[in-house]
Structures are given as C-alpha cells and as structure tokens.
Design a protein around this nucleic acid. Structure first.
Length: 726
DNA sequence: CTGACGAACTTTTTT
DNA sequence: AGTTCGTCAG
C-alpha cells in the first residue's frame, strides 16, 4: 500500500479534504486550487487506505470530458484499471440506472434517448397536433419551458393551474408532450434525471440496494447542479452523510439554465454535520492575475468568501489595449500572439476568450490572413450533423419502430415520394387512434384511401426498415451500421449532393468507424438487458462526439468564456470588454445576472497562467450597426496598479482608467471616488430600497443609476438625492 | 422537391 | 451583417 504517493503531493488543506473521515463535506475549491486532484486523491485514499471497494464509489460530473479525465487520473495514480468505479455524468449514470431497471421505471426496454434537436422535433409535432401556431408558441420557448419544469422536478400534473389561459395552454402542451414521449419510448435529457429520481424514490428496495452499493458519493462542480440533480444526490445519500462535494460558488455561470447556487446553502441545512474546507492556494496564475480576480469577484454579494493566493510571485502586469474598432482589436491580438510565438511560445498555449460566439469571426479572419493555425471550440458536433442523425434515425427505428421522432426524420430521407399530404394523413390517424406513426402506417398502407403512388412509397419504406432489421439481426454493430448507411440509400444520396456532399458521405463512413470503436470499447460491465445497438444510440445522444480535432496540433484556441471553464493557458486574451457585450446587454439592469457575468469575468481572468491581456474597442459593428460602447464596468473594478495600458491614452475617447489625478495613484482603482459602490443596497426617501448599478461622473456631477424594488430604474444626481446605505 | 427570395432573428451550452 | 428559417413559385 503506497500511501505516500496519495498524500505527499498535497498541501495542508488538500490533505485535510482527502483524508477527512466519511462525513458530508464541501470543498470550496477556488480556480486553479487543485479540485480535480482532491477528488482523485480522495477516491484513491478511500480505496487504498479505507479499503472501500472501488465499485462502492460513485463520482458524478457534468461533462463527459471531466468524467474521462477523472477516470484517467485515478488509473494513473493507482496504476490500475478503474473500470469498476462508477464515474460518469449525471445523465450518463441516470441512463445506466434506467437501463438496468427499465421495467420499474415504466419504460420499454428499448427506450431511446433524445438529444435537444430530437426533442425540438417532437415538440413541433405536438404543436401541430394541437393546432397551435408556431409563431404564437415558438417551439424553442416551449422546449425551454418544459426543460425548466423538469429541471425543477415537476411534471405537468404537479404544476398548479392558476387559471391563466396562456399558462393552461402551456400545461396542455407539456402534458401532450409527455404522452407522446411515453408512447414513443423516448426520453429527453431532463427526463433521464427526473425519471431516475422517481425510480429511486418510489422503490424502497432499489433505493436500499443502492444505499448499500454506494458507500461514498462524490460530486464535481457542485455549484452547477440544478434542483433535480440535487434531489437525486440527497436521495442517494439520505441519512448517511456520505456526500463529498467539490465546487466554487464564484464560478457558478450556469444559473440561466437552471443551476442553483442555493444548493450550497440547502446542503448546509440538510447535512447539519457537514464540514467545509476551503482551497485557496492557487497553482496556476501569477500574483498579479489573482489580485485582479480577487478584487473583481469581491464586488459580488452573498459569497461564501475565498481569497486566492500564490507563492509564485507577482509576474507581469496585466495589459490593457484599447482598440479603434473590432478589426484593430483582432489585429492587435494576433500580432501579440505571433510575436510571442516568435520568442519561443506556442500557439496552443494561447487562448482568445470572448463572451459570445459571434465575436470569433473577426479573429478568425485575421488569423486566417496571417496563416496562423487556430481552432474554434463549439459548433456542431459529430453526432449532431444532419447526415449522421439521419443514419441514426434508421437505426433507432430498427431498435424501436414506435420512435416517432426518428420516423418523421427519415420517412422521406432520402426522398422517396412521400410528401406532406401522406404524412398529414399518418399524423391524423396516429392522433385519432393513439398510435405511433409506424402503426398508423401499417393501418394506412394498402387502404383504398391512398393513391397507388403513395401506397408504393409507404410500402417501400416499410419493407426497407423491416428488411434492415431482419437482415442485420445477428450482425455485429458495425455491420448493422454499414448496412443501414448503404441500403437506406443515404450514402448514395449524399454522394450525389453537390453541396458538401463529399464531406457528408465521409461522415457516414466515419459513423461506421465510430460503431467499430464502440464495439471494441464496450466490453466491461455491459449493461444487463440492453442491446449493443441501444447502448450505441444512447451513447450518440449522451456524448455528442467529443472528438475535438487533434490535441497535438499547435493552434491558437478560440472559445467562449463559458467553454473555457476548467481550462488554463499561459496567455489569455479576454476581448470585447465593453458594456453591453460583456457584461451582456440583457444583464445590465438585473443585479443577479450582472453578478453572474462578473463570475464569468472571474472565470476568464483565472484561466491565465502567466499573462493576461484585456481588450475593448471604441467602436464596434454589431448587428449591422456601428456602436460606440463604453468600456466594461468590470475594467473599472480592477486595481490600476496591476495594469499597463498598451495604447497611448490621449487617443482614447472613453478612457477606461478614469482620470483621477487628485487621488493618490498608488492605491487608486478605476472606481471614481464615491462613498457608494456598485451593487450596494441603498434607501431613498421616496423611491424606497434599491441597488446601485452604475456610477458616473465626479464630485458634484456624480450620478448613480439605481434599480429600485418598487419603482424600477432611476438615474439620480448624488449631490441631491438623499440616500442611506443599507 | 428544389431553388430563390424575403423576414426575422441575434448570450452563454451540456447532457 | 450574416445567418437561418419559412414561404412561394416553378
């Protein structure tokens, strides 16, 4: 037993967390403080020192990437295979439980997982069935509503009817959607979690079994859990205090999709014997970068409070560049990257981080014209491409004829002369008799109602699917996939397609390849009663294709701030720091959202190891309009002694550094002198309570923008308004 | 069923 | 501006 390799590389706080007795534990791990390391070493400790069998440990993450990394690092540390450790995403684990207990979860054995595009299709179909106008009921909004309810653990029947007709209609849609999914054997992402929760809640024997099975439950990025995920964790650990959480309230950036920071305080209530351990020593960034990050995040309220430190020294100052326009901004950034690489740096150690995807364009153009290698993260993934989804839809029909979403997708792909009319008829029959589209087709085919042509087409489709299923019955997975790709006509169809047809055909061949790899990889612990095909299809939905180009290529990394979470780069360019862009327009008048933007800024800054560049532009073409944005308020929150401006001040029309000659420049920050600060709560004699959102001007001219709870937004002259700080 | 044209958008994204 | 989406004509 080699305990030293587990314990020695840790600092005191990390060691305390790793060796803590089994007890509800929250590790507040600041950026770069080694949170994955703590999780990995904790599990290794439990296996090697506490002699807990590996299969009794459960570890939950949000992304497949994180799960994969964790598994890899444990194997590396323990020098053994970790295949019997339950490590996975919330959705992956939920899926696994549902496969094992499909019957008790009231699901067909061959149930299929829908990704969000599939879900959207089903919703459109529901709307059409209810005769609702898509312009009045935008499918995306409906989808958002349904997912938000599921994230809260609510089914349609749980939601009270307030008598509001709009809301009533929404409920009808939700209910109809649920019914359609049940009938088709389809499960969306939210449903995976919700249904697993119900499964465990309603089956005492199962719950007892998993209580015994999972002696320790570990959770990564706890601040990102939503209500149903937390309920799930509680159920698995109730009465047993064996929950080990790692998270950082300052890096909670997914509130907009249901993540609840409140889960942290709920945890504190629900597990009264918990302990909290803070990891504040940072191993990533220079002191200067950490000071900037600490200062910015300190403007947020209600934090649990952390202060990152390092013993690595201050390092270089942060660079601030004011661009004339967005081309100039791109020019500057690419210039700096190239000259740094000229001095021996690597492209891949450089990242350009922006708030919104649309901003990548200008940088891509500049990188392209200077022949600088780069990679943009985000965008369509492999299993999300239309041609791949079409092939998968055939496979799904083979697995489950009643999968209406897949049926609609391929009934006329490639085109075989089944038009809207025939499809309308099918939908009508399906709806009237409560059948799947497949069964509706069986009922309709060979009926005199159909024209000979339509009938032939339908019969052809029917025969095709049956034939694919029949002939592939005893084949290996990749042979089935090959058969589908070729015999469905998809491959030939795409080969003829003049618009990127070659690439699409190539992707279909790649799908065959993916099936081969899956075959080989899914050896251990194959799920009890699921077929390999079912598992492959679920894999496609749950892991939309992590294949991120070659990591070996030396490229500049371009991505949004959101997708940069968890990564680190020697040089980071945080661009577009303008009010309205970052923080985004929509968050400017809402303190909670503004604070989330500030956390996003904190995440961005703490990605940088050695050198941080901040840029903003004096003019920007946005949505076809020229705008002249103000520098981001976040810039004013960074102490100026940490920053060096790259461009001469006198050419800047909106200096980010507020002229502040009277104040002594040593300790001055970008904030104007004022007894008030952003985010501060104040009371006004007539307007009541509110929160300060903006400060402007100096001395007697100073104005504040306040969002009052009762009367909304107001601009007030500070010298006239009588404000009391709260 | 395809191609063309016009309208309506436009934060962030994983599963 | 640029893209995507839906509608219409051929």
């Amino acid at each position: 037993m080699d305990v030293t390799s587990i314990i020695d590389p840790l600092n005191d706080a990390q060691r305390q967390a790793v060796t803590a007795p089994s007890q509800a534990t929250l590790v507040l791990a600041g950026a770069g403080s080694g949170k994955t390391r703590v999780l990995v070493h904790r599990m290794a400790w439990q296996i090697q020192v506490e002699n807990i069998p590996a299969h009794s440990l459960l570890a939950v993450t949000f992304t497949n990437k994180a799960a994969k990394e964790m598994r890899g690092r444990i194997e590396e540390l323990l020098k053994m295979s970790a295949h019997n450790l339950w490590i996975g995403t919330f959705h992956g684990l939920a899926h696994r439980l549902l496969r094992r207990h499909a019957r008790q979860a009231h699901l067909p054995e061959a149930f299929q997982v829908m990704d969000s595009a599939d879900q959207l299709r089903v919703i459109k179909r529901v709307l059409a069935g209810l005769n609702l106008d898509e312009s009045k009921w935008p499918p995306r909004q409906v989808q958002w509503y349904i997912n938000a309810q599921k994230d809260e653990g609510l089914r349609a029947r749980h939601i009270p009817d307030h008598g509001d007709p709009y809301h009533q209609q929404q409920l009808v849609i939700y209910r109809t959607y649920e019914a359609l999914c049940d009938r088709s054997g389809l499960v969306d992402f939210g449903e995976l979690l919700l249904r697993t929760h119900e499964l465990l809640r309603d089956n005492a024997d199962l719950l007892a079994f998993y209580h015994q099975r999972f002696l320790q439950v570990h959770v990564d990025e706890f601040q990102d859990t939503n209500a149903i995920q937390y309920a799930w964790l509680r159920l698995l650990t109730e009465g047993r205090d064996n929950l080990f959480l790692v998270g950082d309230d300052d890096q909670s950036i997914y509130g907009w999709r249901g993540a609840k920071i409140e889960n942290i305080s709920l945890f504190q209530q629900h597990y009264p014997n918990h302990q909290i351990i803070k990891l504040e020593q940072n191993y990533r960034s220079t002191g200067t970068i950490l000071k900037a990050a600490n200062k910015i995040i300190s403007f947020n309220s209600g934090r649990l409070g952390k202060n990152l430190w390092t013993n690595a020294g201050d390092g270089e100052l942060i660079s601030l560049y004011t661009a004339f326009n967005e081309q100039d901004e791109a020019h500057f950034v690419v210039d700096r990257i190239r000259s740094w690489v000229g001095e021996g740096g690597k492209f891949s150690e450089t990242a350009i981080l922006y708030r919104s995807n649309a901003q990548s364009r200008q940088f891509e153009e500049r990188l392209m014209s200077t022949a600088t290698p780069y990679r943009v993260y985000g965008g369509l993934r492999f299993f999300e491409r239309a041609e791949v989804k079409n092939a998968l839809a055939y496979l799904r029909l083979i697995a489950n004829r009643h999968d209406d979403a897949s049926f609609e997708r391929v009934i006329n792909t490639p085109t075989r002369g089944i038009g809207t009319k025939t499809l309308e008829d099918l939908r009508l029959i399906a709806q009237e008799r409560g059948l799947s589209l497949w069964n509706a087709m069986l009922a309709l085919v060979n009926q005199p109602t159909l024209t000979a042509r339509a009938n032939n087409a339908l019969a052809g489709f029917l025969a095709l699917v049956e034939q694919l299923a029949e002939q592939g019955r005893d084949e290996a997975l990749f042979e089935k996939v090959t058969r589908v790709v070729e015999k469905s006509g998809l491959l030939a169809w795409y080969e003829k397609d003049k618009d990127k047809g070659e690439e699409k055909a190539e992707n279909l061949k790649e799908l065959v390849n993916a099936a081969k790899l899956f075959d080989a990889a899914s050896l251990p612990d194959a799920e009890d009663n699921a077929s390999e095909l079912d598992l492959f299809l679920s894999h496609a939905a749950l892991e939309a294709g992590d294949l991120q180009g070659d990591d070996s290529d030396d490229c500049v990394q371009l991505m949004t701030l959101h997708s940069a979470k968890g990564l680190e780069f020697k040089r980071v360019f945080l661009v577009g720091l303008e009010d309205g862009l970052f923080p985004s327009q929509q968050s400017l008048d809402d303190l909670a959202r503004l604070e989330e933007e500030r956390r996003l800024c904190y995440v961005g800054i703490t990605r940088a190891m050695q050198h941080l560049y901040l840029t903003y532009s004096e003019s920007r073409r946005l949505y076809g309009r020229e705008s002249y944005p103000k520098p981001s308020r976040f810039l004013r929150e960074i102490p100026m002694e940490l920053v060096q401006e790259v461009r001469l001040r006198n050419t800047v029309s909106h200096p980010a550094i507020v002229a502040n000659s009277k104040a002594n420049s040593k300790s001055a920050s970008f904030m104007p002198n004022s007894p008030y600060s952003l985010g501060q709560r104040v009371r006004h004699n007539t307007f009541g309570e509110g929160v300060i959102l903006q400060l402007e001007g100096d001395g007697a001219q100073q104005r504040v923008q306040i969002n009052f709870r009762e009367v909304g937004m107001k601009w007030l002259m500070l010298s006239y308004a009588k404000l009391d700080a709260l």
